[in-house]
Amino acid sequence: MYPGSGRSYYATPWELRYRAWTLDFTPDDSGTPAFPHDQIINPYQADPFLEWTADDWDPALRFWTLPFDLQLNQWLKAVDPTKPSVIAACEFGGQKDLWLYDRAELINRNWLDARDLAWQPDPNLSNDPGWGAEKLRAWNIVLSEIRELQQLMLDDRECYLSEIDVQADGLADYFFDFIGASEGRRPWTIELVNCGLAIGNIAYMSYKEKFRRVRPSFLCPGLIPAFGPPAHPAFPSGHSFLGHFIALLLLEIPGIYQRFGIYGGNVGDMGQAVGEHTLDGRDPIPSPMFWLAQRLAKNRERLGVHYPSDSFASRHLAFHIWYALRKEAPARRIVCPALERVIGYAKAEWPTDWP
């Protein structure tokens, strides 16, 4: 029962609490391995493939499995519709034709590259004689990613678990602490981060439903995390998307860019700086802000709740959606006046011309 609720409560997988036994990596006295890491399911061994189903979603989020609603009516039930960040998200959601693309279009537009989607058999080959070989190729990619997650589980998870636990629902707080922002001193900077969260949640949740990738622990029970896993699909990573997207928005503020921007870039010119350092690539980005974004992403891998390719795909999607909002040519730009206003007010909170 919920305390004082007067109704029955049954535990569901995404509400399970901390499981300490997931930290003991020592084989028992019979020699049995600590975790069943060798037992891994091939999601492509039969048609249809193993995918995240509507029943796997958290009931509170299951509306994402419905056709996309330009008015975001279900999403609005859980938020304050008067906040500038929510208005910006509604403006963004109403222009889905400028950002919600299918697999082929994402590749054609270079929003994602082949490695981002190497885990998925190319559906264009489904009727070719080489379909079996294509499924085997994709399975080998998935297997290699799971092996990498197993190694992170053994080497890193216990050391980072306290940080991972806080970041699970406290991602924004890491940005506030990192740049020293508070509601009292810089309220519009706080609202800009809220814009990143609101727009980002709509973007990555829509793509999660489109790709429906099962969590690693669905395929390898030995990867069961210490809490969770989240009850929505793995691809793309929400933490990686939000981390990189919020970083991009914050670095549009010259006063923040001076300290946390891309080293070697031009202060105040995020378009040029990002282009110089290829945020849509895979190399580390020489920036404290993007270091934080990447750490948020990597910790989700350490927890074992998404794959390395989910992290990079989210970084790439975040960059291209930011670019479509802020730098794209007018004919293809996503127009969000509320976001423009919030950015303008936030810039005024970080003067760069102190005497």
Rank of each mutant, 00 (worst) to 15 (best):
G264S: 11
D269W: 12
R259L: 04
L249W: 08
I256Y: 08
R259G: 05
A273D: 06
I262H: 05
G275W: 04
G265H: 02
G265V: 01
E252D: 15
A273Q: 04
V267Y: 09
I253F: 08
G265Q: 01
Q272E: 13
M270V: 13
V274A: 15
N266C: 01
G255R: 03
V274Q: 06
E252P: 06
I262Y: 07
L250A: 05
A247R: 08
G264F: 12
D269M: 09
L250D: 03
L249R: 11
H244E: 05
L251Y: 03
G268V: 07
G271Y: 08
G275Y: 05
F260I: 00
I253N: 04
H244A: 13
L250Y: 10
L248M: 11
V274I: 09
A273I: 05
G275S: 13
P254T: 09
Q258H: 13
P254W: 11
Q258K: 15
G261R: 07
D269A: 09
A273C: 07
G271R: 14
A247F: 09
D269H: 13
A273R: 02
G255L: 05
N266Y: 08
E252G: 15
I262V: 14
D269V: 04
Y263M: 12
G271T: 03
Y263V: 14
I253C: 07
V274M: 14
Q272V: 05
G265P: 01
G271W: 07
H244D: 12
Y263P: 00
L250N: 07
G268A: 10
N266S: 12
V274P: 00
G261T: 08
D269F: 12
L249M: 14
P254I: 11
L249T: 07
D269P: 12
Y257K: 00
F245G: 07
I246D: 01
I256S: 08
Y257C: 11
M270I: 14
L248T: 02
I246P: 02
G264N: 09
L248K: 01
A273W: 09
H244Q: 09
F260Q: 00
M270D: 00
I246W: 02
V267T: 15
N266V: 13
G261P: 12
